[in-house]
Design a protein around this nucleic acid. Structure first.
Lengths: 153, 153
DNA sequence: CTAAATCTTTACAAAAAAGTAAAGATTTTT
DNA sequence: AAAAATCTTTACTTTTTTGTAAAGATTTAG
């Protein structure tokens, strides 16, 4: 399981914006310089964030990007949803079908069940952390979560 | 964040083995047929699992693969570690350095903190589910885990 | 001992993701 | 109005991941 480049750098752009404040916009060359990436690549990232409604662009001189909402109201989950697919989506089953048109497990799938549960678990984390938490806090691992495992009938 | 093909199909191979039992080994053509992938690709997956010590191979006629331990003793976490890197590892910071030799955030990194916390959270899930749970149970989403967020001093 | 069934290794081909380049559109400043 | 700063779009190149192919090694059955 891996974090994609878009997720990594995209999240960093959001952190930069949150730190910078919304007084004046941050420009692509500024993003690029602060993260050590190229300006066109920064442009690609910000465009993705813009299309998801997390940031807005101001064109022309004195332009750049600003957050649409205050960092307190931006959940990590929204950012992840903007930057990539969730771990498990219906697309998942359509993708891993081996050489067949449709997955051999369609219907009753043990692995699908685990991914869905996993997805829910991850979601409960991403729901609880905001961009504001990220820039202003230490975040500690949560206490051991309980996990109910129920035997099949 | 995505589950890689190796993780998806590798986990399925483990499920097949757990279901099949260790009486007689499962062969590559059998894995291939049951999962709808090619036999050489199944070979690649099983080789990865073998090198991590999760399965062992029996060569020659009547050969194939068997689990090294009973499913009750195989945690999902071990399987994931065999099939891929964890979400966050030191390699992560070495990979996403933009155009620089070393990441601009090395030292104090907000994003690193979140990935490490996230990793721990995910780990607490993968520690608690065994291969046996996977083949014999319904697994339900855990209750809302508490998440302590402590303000910086 | 030989042949068949099996795993093993290495090298290669195809597909997806990451990242680059260049030309175009918009706004502000002068 | 013109120029400069900025975002926007499209197409392309590179790198990584996936998946394939083929020849080799090992064991068992007869």
């Amino acid at each position: 399981m891996k974090i994609t480049a878009i997720e990594e750098y995209g999240l960093r752009c959001m952190v930069l914006l949150a730190r910078h404040g919304n007084e004046d916009p941050l420009t692509l060359p500024e993003f690029a310089e602060k993260e050590g990436v190229s300006a066109p690549y920064a442009g690609k990232l910000l465009m993705i964030l813009k299309r998801s409604g997390l940031v807005k662009a101001v064109r022309g001189r004195r332009g750049g990007y600003v957050l649409v909402k205050p960092p307190e109201e931006i959940k990590l989950k929204e950012i992840f949803e903007a930057l990539g697919k969730p771990v498990f989506s219906t697309a998942h089953c359509d993708k891993y079908t081996g050489e067949n048109e449709i997955c051999v497990h369609s219907g009753d799938c043990t692995v699908k069940n685990i991914w869905q549960t996993f997805e829910g678990f991850i979601g409960s984390f991403l729901e609880r952390v905001t961009l504001a938490d990220l820039v202003s806090c230490d975040i500690n691992p949560p206490p051991e979560p309980g996990l109910r495992v129920r035997q099949k009938a």
